[in-house]
Simulated assay, not measured.
Amino acid sequence: MADLSFYISPLSEEIREEGRAQARGESILILLGARGIEITDATREKLTTCTDSELARKWLIRAVHATTAEEIFGAEELPGR
Rank of each mutant, 00 (worst) to 15 (best):
Y7L: 13
I15T: 08
K46C: 08
E17Y: 12
F6H: 05
G19N: 13
R44K: 15
S9Q: 09
D52L: 01
L60Y: 06
T43H: 11
D41C: 05
I8H: 09
M1A: 12
A23V: 12
L4I: 07
R81H: 08
E45M: 11
T51S: 13
E76S: 14
R24E: 14
S12M: 08
G80W: 04
R16K: 15
S53L: 05
A66P: 04
T68N: 05
I15R: 10
E77I: 10
V64K: 01
T40C: 08
E13R: 15
R20E: 14
K58H: 13
A66M: 02
F6P: 04
T67Q: 14
E17P: 08
R35I: 00
R62P: 04
R20M: 14
T68L: 08
M1T: 09
P79E: 00
F73G: 08
G74I: 04
S5G: 04
G74T: 14
R44T: 04
R35C: 00
K58S: 10
Y7T: 03
L4N: 06
G33Y: 03
E13N: 14
E13Y: 14
G25L: 02
L60E: 07
E18P: 05
R44F: 00
E77A: 15
S53H: 15
I15P: 08
E45D: 15
T68K: 10
T51H: 12
D3L: 02
I72H: 06
G33S: 07
C50P: 03
K46L: 10
S5Y: 01
L47D: 08
T67L: 07
L31M: 13
L55F: 09
I39L: 00
L55R: 12
I39S: 00
L78F: 05
I39E: 02
T49E: 12
L11R: 12
E18F: 11
I39A: 02
I37R: 01
G25P: 01
E13D: 13
G19R: 13
L32V: 01
R81P: 05
T67A: 05
I28Y: 01
A66C: 15
S12K: 06
Q22P: 04
L47N: 01
E76C: 03
T51N: 14
A75H: 14
Q22G: 06
A42Q: 15
G80F: 10
I8T: 14
R81S: 12
G74E: 13
G36F: 03
A69C: 11
E18K: 15
R62T: 01
T68P: 08
E18W: 07
R81I: 03
S27I: 01
I72W: 06
E38K: 10
I72R: 06
L47A: 09
L47P: 03
E70N: 12
A23I: 12
I61C: 02
S27H: 02
A63S: 10
E13A: 15
R16S: 10
E18H: 13
P10G: 07
G25A: 09
F73D: 05
K46Q: 14
E70I: 06
S9I: 09
F6W: 09
E38R: 11
V64A: 13
